[in-house]
Design a protein around this nucleic acid. Sequence first.
DNA 1: CAAGTGTTTTAGTCATATCTAAATTATTAT
DNA 2: ATAATAATTTAGATATGACTAAAACACTTG
Lengths: 227, 227
Amino acid sequence: MILFDMTKKILSEAQEDYLKQIYFLTETLPLAGTQALADKLGVAPASVTVMIQKLGDMGLVEYEQYKGVRLSDSGLAAALELLRHHRLLETFLHQALGYGWDEVHEEAEKLEHYISETFEARMAAWLGHPSRDPHGDPIPDSNLKFPLHPEETRLIDHLVGFEGRIVRVGTQDRDELNLFRQLGLVPGATLSVLEATDDALRVQLNKEPYLLPHSLAQKLWVEKESL
Amino acid sequence: MILFDMTKKILSEAQEDYLKQIYFLTETLPLAGTQALADKLGVAPASVTVMIQKLGDMGLVEYEQYKGVRLSDSGLAAALELLRHHRLLETFLHQALGYGWDEVHEEAEKLEHYISETFEARMAAWLGHPSRDPHGDPIPDSNLKFPLHPEETRLIDHLVGFEGRIVRVGTQDRDELNLFRQLGLVPGATLSVLEATDDALRVQLNKEPYLLPHSLAQKLWVEKESL
DNA sequence: CAAGTGTTTTAGTCATATCTAAATTATTAT
DNA sequence: ATAATAATTTAGATATGACTAAAACACTTG
């Protein structure tokens, strides 16, 4: 006899934000540390400790004193649900309401906590169930599985001679996004790598050569030109 | 020298909900009472007292002990801003995302607190700056002035022989909305009053006669058929 | 106009989520 | 291996917004 549906979440905005940042930090590291979380969330480390203890009691994270936290299965589901909300919202704001790609993040950041499952479903349908948001970031499907993009690679990993198409611009920073946009470095743009130096990449973009510092090239994902 | 922009509000969801209910209650009465607010908001009277004291300190309401509250100018502006958000959202959810008119209220109730001014403006533009929401309720314009609908009258006030068009269905109750919809009593429908009894109105709607209890007729606003 | 009834306010608690300062644990370097 | 440094946790406080119980006020009725 099921007394409570554990899949149904009643989480506060703060709790969801913690889960989201734990998700991002544990994409690279095995555990998310207290200090790192405090930095990302803009709160004091002591606040993080208290909150992750609570999230641990709720079964959303696995927490080891002085070590760090990782998401549990239910915590991961909550984080992915939130990520789906965020990226669908970004796409919808861009496509339906004409938001610039530098404007979508801030609005989605707030609304992601408050839209219903109905809203999520209707946005997805309106958009034709997109698999990427305006920056090219993948959108988990309604079962919270990521779409497969097996050809996606980091521009920085490629050698001279590579030709392909930008599929993803990995930053949320408005100034940086505007810079990418200014340079034409947006999803769909085609480029080839002309030369690689220690701290930059010379690329050809729409017939024009550009010198692309590693700091920027690092944030671009590409696919080999197919067809 | 202006230190703070008092027009820019940083109100909590709870505070906004109080202002909204004070607004609705003072549409009919000169002051909103503690008990009435408690009922509308689903909280204890003691909680209302504390909150309206705080809103009074913030200059959003005029509060007299044991008498009740009314909105100040800035409180009214905040309430109307919220009402604009709510009704634009209802219209947008209906028009853009295909929400039924019985579904829009609940979603708008939450989102109204969290959308930006940008979102408000883009919705309004997308919709062509509508002056009514899906139920026919008027939407304050961007200066928070209500659109003029001088011909709008209550169906209940009309005599036998009246012919006109429904412009507004004044309820948020889902079951009641579905009933109105079932009967074809929606904004735009034309009807005429055939007969008036003590507790009901016989009306003709799309060639079909209906017996409309006062409890329902009370909630309909109409305009005389122009053109 | 005084008494009783019902509404409103005050007082004291609780839960959430934050903070600072102090104490504790872990890591790094000598 | 120990001492210094850095990260983490605990303890105690604050703000918001809710609660219950008790006190204060206002209205209505005899």
